[in-house]
Design a protein around this nucleic acid. Structure first.
Lengths: 150, 150
DNA sequence: GCCTTATTGTGAACTTGTCAAAATAAGTGC
DNA sequence: GCACTTATTTTGACAAGTTCACAATAAGGC
């Protein structure tokens, strides 16, 4: 899974979605892969390691497009800019430390389609269940971090 | 449950939290109560029915403070400003129609503490589970609204 | 009623993200 | 390999939503 083979895989996926394979898209995909749960500005910084001249706007456009395509997943924690990751296709959830902001992936205990059967959806057809856990991570608890204001 | 009795209840709650009882706080609480799942600007408009001179900044300050106090609950759906409601204390979830944006409260099928036991929290102590369902409401489905892009 | 201090109002600024139009480059056919 | 077409990126401005510092006001205690 060295860079070039990842590039090959992503190039195929991009073509499969009818998209051209550009340095910018590959740089963004590499950046998100290397820094999961990162906001757009961190992805910009990471992408610039590979492609120094990429612009913020391109990162926004690429992230938005690839998210619509389903190649990236976006989630928006409270009081935080949107975060992106390459892990798509399962519907895992996220646990966020309210003290330090770290984010961990969480597989749902119920199986692969958690919480998609709430008691009463008022007639809605549910397509996505977005679950965010907020708590205190082990490191912050050890440092005596206070409970969040809620 | 006419306005004056609600005002009395809220006044008590505010005092219990060490807050002064102001027209602005009561107007915001009335507005949120009357318009659940509303963003700050809608709450401003509603609060002005009761207190025409209240300013946007006051609404933001009051909403933020009352949310920290636990008298209001805030949630932030994707691609939407923050929404507020007075229903707190249970951990109900929200279903959002991706076509028209309507929001419904959803009690979790599992009981009163849903999804608080994910499979692996990486050592985090979970305090809140924020669950958002996205789908198509019955009305929009009847009108033939398309499925969302993701 | 007066005083103290929390609260609100004023006005500006900031962050995140979006848009329109010009410049560039990926893919296609020759 | 070269030219062409059109997607993609860049440029630069802009917008929504929210927050901040500080002055003005008013709630609660005496």
């Amino acid at each position: 899974m060295h860079p070039s083979s990842e590039h090959t895989e992503w190039a195929s996926a991009l073509r499969a979605h009818g998209r051209r394979v550009t340095k910018q898209r590959l740089a963004v995909l590499d950046a998100v892969e290397a820094h999961p749960h990162s906001p757009a500005d961190a992805i910009l910084a990471a992408a610039r390691d590979e492609l120094p001249d990429i612009t913020p706007q391109s990162v926004y456009v690429v992230l938005g497009d690839l998210t619509d395509l389903g190649m990236l997943r976006r989630f928006e924690p409270p009081h935080s800019p949107a975060l992106y990751e390459t892990r798509v296709g399962d519907n895992h959830h996220h646990a966020i430390c309210s003290a330090c902001g770290r984010v961990e992936d969480v597989d749902c205990a119920v199986g692969h389609a958690p919480c998609l059967t709430p008691s009463d959806t008022h007639g809605m057809t549910i397509m996505i269940a977005d679950v965010t856990y907020v708590g205190i991570c082990a490191d912050c608890a050890a440092k005596g971090a206070p409970a969040p204001t809620a």
